[in-house]
Amino acid sequence: MSTGFKCRNCGSNEIEEDNARGDRVCMNCGSVLEDSLIVSEVQFEEMGHGASAIGQFVSAESSGGATNYGYGKFQVGSGTESREVTIKKAKKDITLLCQQLQLTQHYADTALNFFKMALHRHLTRGRKSTHIYAACVYMTCRTEGTSHLLIDISDVQQICSYELGRTYLKLSHALCINIPSVDAFDYLICLLASQYLLERI
Rank of each mutant, 00 (worst) to 15 (best):
M1A: 01
S2P: 02
T3E: 12
T3S: 12
T3W: 06
G4M: 13
F5L: 05
F5A: 12
F5Q: 15
C7N: 02
N9T: 09
G11Y: 08
N13M: 03
N13L: 06
E14P: 01
E17Y: 08
E17I: 06
A20L: 15
A20Q: 04
A20W: 10
G22D: 14
R24A: 11
C26K: 11
M27V: 07
N28A: 15
C29V: 13
G30Q: 08
V32W: 10
L33E: 15
L33H: 13
L33M: 09
L33F: 06
E34W: 00
I38R: 09
V39D: 10
V39I: 02
S40H: 05
E41I: 15
Q43W: 07
M47N: 03
H49Q: 08
G50L: 09
G50T: 14
S52G: 02
A53M: 10
I54C: 11
G55A: 05
Q56W: 00
Q56I: 02
V58G: 01
V58T: 07
A60N: 01
E61W: 02
S62T: 09
A66K: 07
T67P: 00
N68D: 06
Y69V: 08
G70S: 01
G70E: 00
Y71G: 03
K73I: 12
F74K: 01
F74A: 06
Q75S: 10
Q75A: 09
Q75F: 05
S78I: 08
T80S: 03
E81D: 12
R83P: 04
E84V: 11
E84K: 05
E84R: 02
E84H: 06
V85P: 04
I87R: 12
A90I: 00
I94M: 10
L97K: 08
C98D: 11
Q99K: 12
Q100N: 13
Q100A: 09
Q100V: 09
L101V: 12
Y107N: 07
T110K: 10
T110V: 02
A111C: 03
A111H: 06
A111D: 00
L112G: 14
L112T: 01
L112V: 10
N113K: 06
F115N: 07
K116M: 14
A118G: 03
R121G: 06
T124K: 13
R125K: 14
R127Y: 14
K128N: 07
S129R: 15
T130P: 02
H131F: 07
I132L: 15
Y133C: 05
Y133T: 02
A134G: 08
A135R: 08
A135N: 04
C136S: 03
C136W: 01
V137R: 04
V137C: 07
Y138W: 15
C141Y: 01
G145W: 07
G145A: 15
T146D: 06
S147P: 11
L149I: 03
L150V: 03
D155E: 07
D155I: 05
I159L: 07
Y162S: 12
Y162F: 14
G165L: 04
T167P: 07
L169S: 15
L171H: 03
H173W: 08
A174N: 03
C176S: 10
I177R: 00
N178H: 15
N178C: 15
I179M: 08
I179K: 00
P180W: 00
S181C: 10
S181A: 13
V182C: 05
A184F: 07
D186R: 09
S194E: 11
Q195L: 13
Q195G: 08
Y196D: 15
E199C: 11
E199K: 10
R200F: 02
